[in-house]
Nucleic acid binder design. Structure first.
Length: 632
RNA sequence: GCCCCGGUAGCUCAGUUGGAUAGAGCAUCGGACUUCUAAUCCGGCGGUCGCAGGUUCGAAUCCUGCCCGGGGCGCCA
């Protein structure tokens, strides 16, 4: 993935944007690069012009920070170097004259763009692709996301994997890469066999089961309870040498063992293809899948049936995979188990792939999945959108996969990345639970968000039909929840707070939706007043006169870089921050720069700015996976 | 015990490769609606960047040690 052209001029490849680019950072990097070469011919190594947007408006639009580092390397005074650069740099066509007065502090060189040059750059951005160039090196990216388990309803913990994973997938796709979403469903193993066992007890052979997911989940819990009863208690009783309790718990454990044996028997049936077991398993899988996909649909994600890639799909790969690892000496025995040592990757804990009893583990299936994704699906990059608590697991598995050669295809090693995220907390700072201490179902969470949004929408939106209010409330509620999840660094925990995310003020999803509505409203109003916006924009020159127009223009030009930076860092918050910046720049513009009241040529220019802003904002919201509305 | 992550304004968060006077939002205080919808905009207030050393012309950022919070550590997934 290329670096952000706006934020890291250093990473710009030699074949990158040229003078024809719309990107002011790229253009200034070329000009200052040439100036530095001329000013300091004996500068050692690579020259990085270090162009960045100015932090504060008083320092101009952009700055070149190269003089200080250069001076350090060659033992000169920073301001002298800056002076030489200023003398050599040629910005006549694009910026206000750069003089000694442009040098500030220890050697910053401040640059202010000419309004007409800025306008011309915005004009170049005004294309169907909105300045996003096709990738020089298109990749196939697998995104592991959602991560549900069979026989369980989705809960609040699935929100992050689903929302963040889908957003990253959308951003990759928007940048022109090929994206494959993979929902690595926990649908195999003893846990699932337990459910099948309980379901077999509840249903008559030859009769199709009719239980819903909630009931199936109860069976799952019962199975868990029955097979583990007494075990913990026995340990404690033995530690305390409490004879009576030991006897009681021992009796419980005898029952639990019997239950476990039954579950294991069903696991064997499942593994050997027993028809009844397969039928019940498929029923549980279908019910779970339907519920999961419904949640994914409500969340406006592109996670579909095609993304369903359960652990069970690797079940026939495990034996040959382990054989392969053993025969090539990648895996070795340890205390009767089979492990892959990854100390050479700086990880002390070995990656266990087979238990002493011959059972396979989470890591075994993950290795099979990596091999499949890289070598069969053709992934150049695999991104795992999974809870941060699994970070050691992924370090081990990634290292083991590389050691085994499973991460390579045609000699090229694919990138394996864990896009780890933190926990959603309740107001008490503990993992988010209901008042009664149970996990929060995702459907309930979405319902409540929409219900709360509905109250506000009904209050604020007059003259809308009930259907409109419902549709708007749903979009606002979903956008609020998703934006709250996407808008801070992945790795951080955050406190789930309906009041804050639905306050509709400041950096929230609804604010962005509202900005888009205002943009659309300009064109709707134009139409109502008989103003032909298309005609007014046709052939109109963009002019940048007011400060608000300038800030809006500068924000627009940052869009492709914001997308690239988001993909590079696997951080949706970067795109959120960009969208919010753009929306605030537009809101100021909207307040201070009348559009429809203006006369030509200002009317045409501002309409074009609005039209471009509308398209960029809508594009960004689409990449974030946020639903939008026409009115609110 | 070892390892990973976090600690920045009252609260929620940004802070790019080490760069200027550390920025936003919320809250609070004060302004702006005969409007292209005020779910908005403009301004004020608010900071020992967890602590202590070190490197540097320059440190929230890099190094070392420590403190606080969370998580993980081969036979679960």
């Amino acid at each position: 993935m290329a670096g952000s052209p706006f934020e890291r001029s250093r990473l710009r490849p030699m074949t990158g944007p040229t003078e024809s680019s719309f990107d002011p950072v790229a253009i200034l990097a070329l000009r200052f690069g040439a100036a530095i070469r001329a000013a300091v011919p004996d500068a050692p190594g690579e020259i990085d012009p270090m162009i960045t947007p100015s932090r504060q408006q008083q320092f101009g639009d952009f700055q070149c920070n190269a003089a200080m580092g250069l001076a350090k390397r060659i033992g000169a005074k920073p301001r002298d170097i800056a002076q030489k650069i200023v003398e050599k740099v040629d910005l006549a066509d694009i910026a206000e004259p750069v003089t000694e007065a442009s040098i500030a502090g220890p050697g910053f060189i401040n640059v202010t763009l000419k309004p007409d040059a800025l306008a011309a750059l915005v004009g170049k951005l005004d294309t169907p692709a909105l300045g996003v160039a096709p990738p020089t090196n298109p990749e196939t990216v697998v995104v592991d996301l959602c991560g549900v388990n069979l026989a369980k309803q989705m809960h609040v913990g699935h929100l992050r994997s689903t929302a963040i994973g889908d957003t990253l997938a959308r951003v990759f796709a928007r940048l022109g890469h090929t994206v494959i979403r993979q929902n690595h469903v926990g649908d195999w193993g003893l846990q699932i066999a337990m459910v099948v066992w309980k379901l077999a007890q509840q249903t008559t052979p030859g009769q199709a089961p009719t239980l819903d997911l909630e009931t199936i989940e109860k069976l799952y819990r019962e199975a868990q309870k029955e097979t583990s009863a007494g075990r913990t208690g026995l340990k404690i009783a033995r530690a305390r040498q409490h004879a009576k309790l030991i006897a009681e718990f021992e009796a419980e454990v005898v029952d639990a063992d019997a239950a476990l044996d039954e579950a294991k028997a069903w696991l064997v049936k499942l593994q050997s293809g027993d028809a009844r077991a397969a039928e019940l398993w498929k029923y549980v899988a279908d019910v779970t899948k339907a519920a999961c996909l419904e949640n994914c649909r409500r969340l406006r994600t592109a996670i579909t049936e095609e993304s369903w890639a359960g652990e069970s799909s690797y079940r026939h790969d495990l034996v040959p995979l382990v054989d392969d690892l053993v025969s090539r000496g990648v895996a070795e025995e340890s205390d009767g188990a089979l492990v892959i040592r990854v100390e050479e990757h700086g990880i002390k804990e070995p990656c266990m792939i087979r238990k002493r009893d011959g059972g396979y583990l989470y890591a075994t299936t993950d290795l099979a999945a990596i091999r499949h994704r890289i070598q069969m699906l053709g992934a150049d990059r695999a991104v795992y959108c999974v809870d941060a608590r699994q970070s050691l697991h992924f370090k081990q598995v990634f290292a083991a996969a590389e050691k085994a050669g499973y991460a390579s295809r045609n000699g090229e090693v694919a990138k394996l990345e864990h896009a780890a995220f933190g926990t959603i907390l309740g107001e008490d700072g503990a993992p988010f639970k209901t008042r009664s201490g149970e996990t929060v179902r995702l459907t309930d969470l979405l319902d409540e968000a929409i219900e709360r949004a509905s109250a506000v929408v009904a209050d604020k939106s007059e003259g809308l039909s009930k259907d409109d209010v419902n549709a708007i409330a749903e979009a606002v509620g979903i956008a609020a929840i998703k934006y709250a999840d996407l808008s801070s660094e992945r790795i951080k925990d955050y406190v789930f707070d309906f009041d804050r995310m639905l306050a509709f003020e400041g950096n929230t999803g609804p604010y962005l939706l509202y900005a888009l509505v205002r943009l659309k409203n300009i064109f709707r109003t134009a139409s109502e007043r008989g103003v032909d916006a298309e005609a007014a924009m046709d052939g109109a020159e963009i002019t940048i006169a007011e400060p608000e127009e300038k800030q809006l223009a500068l924000a627009l030009l940052r869009y492709p870089g914001a997308l690239a930076a988001t993909a590079e860092a696997l951080e949706p918050y970067k795109l959120c921050a960009y969208a919010y910046d753009l929306a605030t720049a537009f809101s100021s513009f909207y307040k201070n720069c009348p559009v429809l009241k203006a006369e030509q040529p200002t009317l045409g220019s501002r309409l074009r700015l609005c039209h471009l802003t509308q398209r960029v904002l809508a594009d960004a919201l689409d990449a974030l996976g946020l639903p939008t509305v026409e009115r609110m």
